[in-house]
């Protein structure tokens, strides 16, 4: 029985390891919850009920009414978790798209113009890579005050240098002796070469880079929110949920443990998928 069950998906995705399949399943579950739960009738993650405060999850003395327990104000942990997950994943996704866009654009520009443009961009990439980013983001937060726009900007700045470095290297490689040089001699306009030919060819590598960037953005966002410097109440993200739950480690450990495990699973699954994708591309 079990052999048959494990063989079936293996045939559907040839060469995809079980860990990657489970990871994809987990992300699909997360995404479905984010989309479906808000439309369920009569649910509210902000509903306070002091009669049901600090109820433990099912299996630790709790009931199915609040199967992941409730927090200090009697709010349902599961519903709060889904709302936080939505914020965290949306921020991470948006930030990754922004940094991929900035990085790729700068990388291609550097490779195209060479000379001082290239040197400037490479210097910026090196500088960005050598300074711990969390220090930079803390500094920016201190100088410019804590607000959601700055926060998104900070997250979007994260990791651009990785995209820039890659796209620059790959563009340079195809410029030197490859199809970019060929199309240039055939009189193709530059924008067409880059948009129609270079981008599609480096897209898979950029996508893999995004799967490396994504979990790190989640970590950055949750770290800052955990420290109370990112997402502010009434909004909630996985990080600030955990940050608040930290005060109840003795009386209600689940308030911190549930988002903690969720963050861990999200970063882990995306990393596993990224590793797998990198292997596939490396082999091709």
């Amino acid at each position: 029985m079990s052999v048959v069950a494990s063989e079936k998906p293996a045939r559907r995705f040839p060469g995809m390891p079980l860990a990657a399949q489970i990871s994809i399943l987990w992300l699909v579950v997360c995404l479905s919850l984010i989309i479906i739960v808000p439309f369920l009738p009569g649910v509210s993650e902000t509903k306070v009920n002091l009669l049901t405060r600090l109820k433990p999850p099912v299996g630790f003395g709790g009931t199915w009414a609040h199967f992941l327990g409730t927090d200090d104000l009697g709010r349902d942990i599961f519903l709060r978790l889904v709302a936080s997950l939505r914020t965290s994943l949306a921020l991470a996704l948006g930030a990754t798209i922004i940094s991929a866009f900035i990085g790729t654009t700068l990388g291609i520009l550097a490779a195209h113009f060479r000379g001082w443009v290239d040197q400037l961009i490479v210097a910026a990439v090196d500088a960005q890579a050598s300074v711990p980013f969390i220090i930079v983001s803390l500094t920016l937060t201190a100088f410019f005050g804590n607000n959601i726009f700055l926060f998104i900007f900070i997250l979007g700045m994260f990791g651009w240098e990785r995209f820039a470095r890659l796209s620059r290297a790959m563009t340079l490689a195809s410029r030197g002796r490859g199809y970019v040089l060929a199309m240039n001699t055939l009189g193709f306009p530059w924008p067409r070469i880059y948009l129609r030919h270079v981008l599609p060819n480096i897209a898979s590598t950029l996508l893999v880079t995004a799967t490396i960037n994504f979990p790190e953005v989640i970590l950055l966002e949750t770290s800052l929110s955990f420290l109370g410097l990112g997402i502010q109440p009434p909004m909630s993200s996985l990080g600030n949920m955990l940050g608040f739950g930290r005060s109840y480690l003795l009386t209600g450990w689940w308030i911190a443990v549930v988002p903690g495990i969720t963050i861990f699973l999200c970063t882990l699954t995306v990393s596993i998928i990224g590793d797998w994708a990198r292997n596939v591309i490396g082999r091709a």
Binding site: S174, R177, G178, Y179, L181, A182, M183, T185, L186, G187, F188, P189, R192, R196, H197, P200, N201
Partner: peptide, 27 residues
């Protein structure tokens, strides 16, 4: 016009040959 040392590298690996030839003329 130029004929390159590494012919396969000088073609866009994602596009069919026909499309690549048509594109040159379209441009």
């Amino acid at each position: 016009q130029m004929v390159f040392q590494h012919p396969r590298d000088s073609l866009d690996p994602l596009m069919k040959v026909d499309d690549q030839l048509h594109e040159v003329l379209k441009v």
